[in-house]
């Protein structure tokens, strides 16, 4: 019963919604529903990145500690988006803190479980990588635009 529910939830998330059925099944095996109150952290910098999140509702702020300048929020991740790719890249550690700034409902996927499945089924692994590459690319584009400081005057 719960597995059925998860399949439905996955189907509604743009990151994986259009995956072939058998791939969705692979994901379901590694997925679970999670819930975070405002102010709770989904992940912490340096910790093992043993999972990642498909955000369903709410908003997560990506935070970086900038030494004496304190905590900086550089991006928010919202409904329909993905938080985290460190699960795929050695040494599998989070590179930022993720703080729920509005109550978050998400799916979390077990990174280790998914890595094993990707290694075993390269077609599935490639599919996941393609989708994540999309995320990398749009993240990078956005970061470049932020670097331009377009609203600044110098």
């Amino acid at each position: 019963m719960q597995k059925e529910d998860l399949t439905d939830v996955l189907r509604k998330h743009p990151f994986v919604g259009d995956l072939e059925k058998q791939y969705l099944q692979l994901l379901v095996g590694c997925a679970k529903n999670v819930h975070f109150q405002e102010g709770e952290y989904l992940c912490h910098e340096g910790e093992a990145a043993d999972s990642f999140f498909l955000i369903r509702t709410g908003r997560v702020a990506v935070e970086i500690h900038a030494g004496h300048k304190g905590k900086r929020r550089i991006q928010t991740v919202g409904p329909g988006e993905v938080l985290g790719w460190s699960w795929l890249i050695s040494p599998y550690r989070w590179h930022f803190d993720g703080c729920a700034v509005a109550e978050v409902r998400a799916l979390t996927l077990d990174g280790k479980c998914l890595r094993t499945k990707c290694d075993k089924d390269h077609d599935f692994g490639y599919e996941m990588l393609k989708r994540l590459s999309h995320v990398f690319q749009s993240r990078m584009e956005a970061t470049r635009l932020q670097l331009l400081d377009v609203y600044g005057t110098r």
Binding site: E38, R59, A61, E63, K71, R73, I74, A102, A142, Q146
Partner: peptide, 23 residues
């Protein structure tokens, strides 16, 4: 509303304007 950068008092969106179309 989104901003390019913020401290931890801001609960809104952070990111560039085009990213808002996602929502």
């Amino acid at each position: 509303v989104t901003v390019d950068r913020s401290d931890s008092t801001w609960k809104g969106y952070i990111g560039v304007v085009p990213s808002l179309f996602m929502y």
